[in-house]
C-alpha cells in the first residue's frame, strides 16, 4: 500500500475542524464550484481519450457495467432487510450503495496518479452508467412499481441531475474538442485537479463531521454496514473488471465505484420518490461512514485486492 495521498489529509482537517466546532465554514457556492470543476474535469479527461478509441468495443463493457449497477442494490436490499431495516429504508440505502460517489472516484484517480498506475480512459463513462440504474432499482424495491410513483418526473430529475449533466457534458466536450482543443483550458481543469479536490475534501470532511453523531446514534448495524458493505461490493467490482479484462488501475477504479455510495444523486431522488425513508440513515451511512472508509482504507485495500486477484 502506498503512502497517504495528501488530498485525504484535507478531509481529516475538515473533519477535525468540524468535530472541534471550529468557525471554519465554506460558502455553499464554493462547494458547488469545486464539485462542478471535478465533474467536468473527470468527464473531459475521459472524453479526450475516448476520441482515440473505437466506440463499438465499449458497448459490451458498458452493458456489463449497467448490469453491475442493477445487481448491487438487488444484493444489498435483502441483507439490509435481514438487518432489521424497514422496507423503505432498506431500499433507499440499497440505492445509495448501488449508485456511485464521484468524490470517491476522484480520490481513486488521484491515488492512481500517486502510485503511478495507468487505467483505461473510458472509466468516467462508467461513472455515468453506474449512477442511475441503482436509483431506479431502489425505487422499485420500495414501491413494487406502484402507480404512486411519478416515473416521468423522476426520470427527468435523475437524468438531468447535476452530476449526470456535467459528467456527460464534459465527456462530450472532451470528445469533440480533443486534446489540442482543450489545451487552452487544461490549466483550470487538469493542472489544478488535485488542488480543487483538496478543497472539495475539506468541505466533505466538514459535512461528514456533522453526520458523525448519527453514525453512532443509529446503532451498530448501520456502522457495520457502512464499513463491511464496501469491501464486499469491491470484490464484485473486481469480478466484473476481470470479466472485462481491465488493467489493474481500471480494476481498482471499478472496485472503488462498486464500493462507493452516492450522496448527491441518490439522496435527492430518494427524497422525492420514497419520502417515507429516513434520509438521515442513508446519508449517515454513505457520507459519514463509507466515504471516509473508502478514501482512507478502501482504495488502498482494493488496490491490494486487485494485485492479488486470482489470475490477475
Amino acid at each position: 500500500m502506498g503512502a497517504l495521498d495528501p488530498v485525504v489529509l484535507f478531509f481529516m482537517l475538515g473533519m477535525a475542524a468540524g468535530l472541534a466546532r471550529s468557525e471554519l465554514r465554506l460558502p455553499p457556492a464554493v462547494y458547488e464550484f469545486v464539485s462542478l470543476i471535478l465533474l467536468l474535469a473527470i468527464g473531459m479527461k475521459g472524453g479526450v481519450q475516448l476520441a482515440t478509441q473505437p466506440l463499438g468495443a465499449l458497448l459490451f463493457d458498458s452493458l456489463l457495467v449497467i448490469l453491475m449497477g442493477l445487481l448491487l442494490p438487488l444484493m444489498a436490499f435483502p441483507l439490509l432487510r435481514v438487518g432489521g431495516l424497514p422496507r423503505a429504508d432498506a431500499a433507499s440505502i440499497a440505492a445509495h450503495y448501488g449508485s456511485v460517489s464521484v468524490g470517491t472516484f476522484a480520490v481513486a484517480l488521484s491515488y492512481l496518479l500517486e502510485v503511478g498506475l495507468e487505467h483505461e480512459p473510458f472509466m468516467p463513462l462508467f461513472v455515468v452508467l453506474l449512477e442511475v440504474p441503482a436509483i431506479f432499482v431502489g425505487i422499485m424495491l420500495a414501491r413494487g412499481g406502484s402507480s404512486r410513483t411519478r416515473w416521468g418526473e423522476l426520470t427527468r430529475e435523475v437524468l438531468l441531475g447535476k452530476s449526470v449533466v456535467l459528467l456527460l457534458g464534459g465527456l462530450l466536450i472532451g470528445w469533440i474538442a480533443g486534446p489540442v482543443g482543450l489545451a487552452g483550458i487544461d490549466g483550470l481543469f487538469f493542472d489544478l485537479f488535485k488542488g480543487v479536490l483538496a478543497i472539495f475534501l475539506l468541505e466533505m470532511g466538514l459535512i461528514a463531521s456533522r453526520h458523525l453523531d448519527g453514525a453512532l446514534r443509529h446503532g451498530p448495524f448501520l456502522l457495520a454496514w457502512g464499513l463491511l458493505a464496501p469491501p464486499v461490493m469491491a470484490v464484485i467490482g473486481l469480478g466484473f473488471a476481470a470479466l472485462m479484462g481491465l488493467s489493474t488501475g481500471g480494476a481498482v477504479l471499478l472496485a472503488t465505484l462498486a464500493a462507493s455510495a452516492s450522496y448527491i444523486a441518490a439522496p435527492a431522488a430518494m427524497r422525492t420518490a420514497v419520502p417515507e425513508a429516513n434520509p438521515a440513515l442513508s446519508l449517515t451511512a454513505s457520507l459519514a461512514i463509507t466515504f471516509p472508509f473508502n478514501i482512507f482504507f478502501g482504495i488502498p485495500l482494493y488496490h491490494w485486492m486487485a494485485n492479488h486477484w486470482p489470475g490477475g
Binding site: P28, Y31, L206, I207, R210, I264, P267, R271
Partner: peptide
Amino acid sequence: RGKRALDWEYEG
C-alpha cells in the same frame, strides 16, 4: 426533524 444547515444542497 433536526438542524437544517443550508451549507450543503440537500440539507437546506
